[in-house]
Design a protein around this nucleic acid. Structure first.
Length: 504
RNA sequence: GGUACCGUGGCCGAGUGGCUAGGCUGAGGUCUGCAAAACCUCCUACAGCAGUUCGAAUCUGCUCGGUACCUCCA
């Protein structure tokens, strides 16, 4: 049996996955900051970890998947007058912070549903866990690894590094961090520049504020994940995921905080997805090159040649290994669009094929099995498991599927008899294609053709066209096809005289 | 400046000592009343230089180019 291997950012190696509690998996993924609209870059981790989640469930694990909503906001720049991102924008838009947060949370949930990602089992909010965060900070202070200055609390990195390996996850050297030449306001509050905030005292104009033992303020950025992961997954859990850009300082700090509170390293397997780039540059707010998801789905953006269906985006992301950068371009997306269409149509063709047995009257035809083809198909299908077990290599699984497409389409066209495959292989093919395409990859049909009335009308038009064709009345048959094409419906003749249609 | 990573055919992207991804595009063909689709065939690449090896896109060194993180970031 193949076992699942995961590239662990912490050890920088592929490791065999073994859960802490047999049969169960605890997984935490850093969720969005809902102070603005999600963009294409955000789609990557959520789709990547959706596949991880789906695959773990497919393997039979009971998975607790925790993905937070960061709604407490963070200061724009550490040390500067607490300029909470959310409160700042709330003033501009004349909205209640809670209203703003709700708006973007709803939009995010909507986009996730478009992508057909499964909801996490727990989706905790930072504002809903202020008490847990304060509790954790108190523990860190009591343990002697944090200090209070003017109502703010900072984590003492140098002290931590004396006994623990700070920087291991991100490959950082503490001495380098201490020497960073960057000047930051309010830096003088910290003992060392590598220290990070656990709690920040809030300036009077700051809207989001909570009482704490150190005065009115708000939590530091890293503590929410530590607090919520500990609460719902325990002191040590299996998988923590997020974008590579969170490696430092976010995840590094998370490890430090949790280790002090829980006396154990929090995470067994750290998984980090790479970035989506555009023209080779990371897509991100700071680069001003983001394409929002609503823009992507509607095509309303100067960089977009057209609108792209959420499933096309999902497929596009799955065609690359999650640890490689993925470069956005209209060309690349359109290539994915066509590829997905081809794969999906072939998959539907497969669904319509009967089992390998021959029709009764043709027994004399002696259906002969093509051993070579049978073996090829069996190998290609069996490799699905092998490839996904190799650090979730969805790109290779898809490549194999595309090698199966001509075989399936030929069976449909009857240029290869279905009986060329052994019944066993045919059943395996059908079953695994379904499991991988729908259950694990979470792909769905792009066209919205599931409408009984439309289907009835189409059947009628097809009937008329067939009649016209049989009378060689091509003017009528072409008229039907051309006018449908004008409406975005393509009608295709099939070899056996049947007709097939798809909505563009 | 520090630390990583990357450079694959027209484009996107797997792979990582010998076999050869895959998608899109392009060319030719089969099929078809015509289309479209489908099917078949072709286009054989790994930044450059040097080295290790029987053999390197894959290992080592250097050069060039690019990116990310070090600050909010998925």
């Amino acid at each position: 049996m193949n076992e699942l291997k995961i590239y662990n950012s912490y050890s920088r190696k592929k490791e065999t996955f073994t859960p802490i509690t047999p049969g169960h998996v605890g997984m935490y993924v850093c969720g969005p900051t809902v102070s603005g609209e999600s963009h294409l870059g955000h789609a990557r981790p959520y789709i990547t970890f959706d596949v991880v989640y789906r695959y773990l469930m497919h393997l039979g694990y009971k998975v607790r998947y925790v993905r937070n909503i960061t709604d407490a906001g963070h200061f724009e720049e550490e040390g500067r007058e607490a300029e909470d991102k959310i409160s700042k924008k709330a003033v501009l838009e004349k909205l209640e912070p809670m209203e703003l947060v709700q708006k973007y949370t709803n939009l995010y949930h909507w986009a996730m549903a478009q992508f057909n990602t499964l909801p996490p089992t727990i989706e905790p909010t930072a504002t809903g866990h202020i008490i847990e965060q304060i509790g954790m900070i108190e523990e860190i202070i009591n343990a002697g690894f944090a200090y209070v200055v003017n109502g703010s609390v900072y984590f003492d990195v140098k002290k931590y590094a004396a006994s623990y390996d700070y920087g291991k996850l991100s490959g950082r050297v503490l001495d380098d961090l201490l020497e960073t030449t960057r000047e930051l306001d309010g830096q003088e509050e910290k003992r060392d520049r590598a220290d990070f905030a656990l709690w920040k005292s809030a300036a009077p104009e700051h809207i989001m504020r909570w009482k704490s033992p150190w005065g009115v303020g708000f939590p530091g950025w890293h503590i929410e994940c530590s607090a919520m992961a500990t609460k719902y997954l325990g002191k040590q859990f299996d998988i923590h995921g997020g974008g590579m850009d969170l490696l430092f300082p976010h995840h590094e700090s998370e490890i430090a905080q949790s280790t002090i509170c829980n006396h154990v390293a929090p995470v067994r397997y750290w998984i980090h997805n790479n970035m989506i780039t555009i023209g080779g540059k990371k897509m991100g707010k700071s680069y001003n090159n983001v394409i929002k998801l609503t823009e992507l789905f509607s095509g309303m953006h100067p960089l977009l040649a057209k609108a792209y269906h959420p499933m096309v985006i999902r497929f596009f992301i799955l065609q690359t290994h999650y640890r490689s950068t993925l470069d956005f371009s209209n060309e690349a997306l359109q290539a994915s669009e066509k590829g997905l269409k081809r794969l999906w149509e072939s998959y539907e063709n497969l669904g319509k094929l009967g089992t390998g047995s021959q029709p009764a009257g043709q027994a004399s035809m002696e259906p002969k099995e093509d051993e070579e083809l049978d073996k090829k198909v069996k190998t290609l299908v069996n490799e699905f498991d092998e490839f996904i077990n190799d650090d979730f290599n969805t790109a290779k699984v898809l490549a194999n599927m595309f090698e199966l497409v001509p075989v399936i389409n030929s069976m449909k066209d009857k240029s290869i008899p279905v009986a060329a495959l052994s019944k066993e292989t045919f059943v395996l093919l059908k079953q695994q294609m379904k499991i991988y395409i729908e259950d694990i990859f979470g792909l769905k049909n792009v066209s919205e053709a599931d409408n009984a009335k439309l289907k009835g009308v189409m059947d009628l038009l097809i009937d008329i066209r067939k009649e016209a064709k049989s009378k060689k009345d091509f003017a009528t048959s072409d008229k039907i096809r051309n006018q449908l094409q004008g409406l975005g419906i393509s009608l295709k003749d099939e070899k056996d005289g049947g007709m097939n249609w798809t909505i563009e």
